[in-house]
């Protein structure tokens, strides 16, 4: 009987040893949206996760990349389409609009006023916290190319890098949480 248990135990140990390494305490998040409300949610979740002791990697793609533009930076040498995209899309996180109830700017500015009144952190503050807590930002290279954005026109953020889909997938694979904000 005890010998039986021992063999079972040995088999179990061998199985456990053969298992792939456990998932990291990490959040991999895709930020697809460039809407103010969704960016706020993305940044609150990211900074919250960092506060919980998680490693956080955010992938900014498609409309999300526009939120990383720095309104103070100007770059030249863009073709017609890139100029159009640059002109049509929000120039940075503070020019983003609500996905609902924007109402020609009235809704968005009302929400910003409300947030101030309630002491809720702004996108500026949330990016600061993200920077402080080591949240990594990875930017989709293809979206940058599509929209005609150049690296030189993005915000200064220490933990920022450019990548493709494989980088996200590799990060997501070893993360305990994956999510998309779209």
């Amino acid at each position: 009987m005890s010998a039986d248990v021992e063999t079972q135990l040995a088999e179990l140990r061998a199985k456990v040893d053969a298992m792939p390494a456990g998932k990291e305490n990490k959040l991999a998040m895709i930020v697809l949206s460039g809407d103010l409300d969704k960016l706020l949610a993305a940044m609150i979740i990211a900074t919250g996760a960092a506060a919980m002791g998680m490693k956080v990697v955010q992938f900014f793609t498609f409309w999300g990349t526009a939120a990383l533009r720095d309104p103070k930076k100007k770059v030249g040498g863009k073709d017609f389409m890139s100029k159009m995209f640059g002109w049509m899309l929000p120039k940075g996180r503070n020019k983003t609009k609500l996905s609902q109830m924007h109402m020609a700017g009235m809704g968005t500015s009302m929400l910003k006023g409300l947030m101030k009144k309630k002491n809720a952190p702004s996108l500026d503050q949330l990016f600061e916290i993200a920077e402080m807590t080591g949240v990594e930002i990875k930017v989709c290279e293809m979206s940058m190319g599509l929209m005609g954005f150049k690296r030189e026109e993005l915000i200064d953020y220490p933990n920022m890098d450019f990548c493709g889909v494989a980088t996200f997938l590799a990060e997501a694979q070893e993360s305990s949480i994956q999510m998309i904000i779209s």
């Binding site: 919250g48 002791g53 002491n119």
Partner: peptide
């Protein structure tokens, strides 16, 4: 006091 989400846990983790 007066700080809404996510600031309480952010401050807590810093302190």
């Amino acid at each position: 006091k007066g700080l809404p989400c996510p600031m309480p846990v952010v401050k807590m983790s810093q302190e």
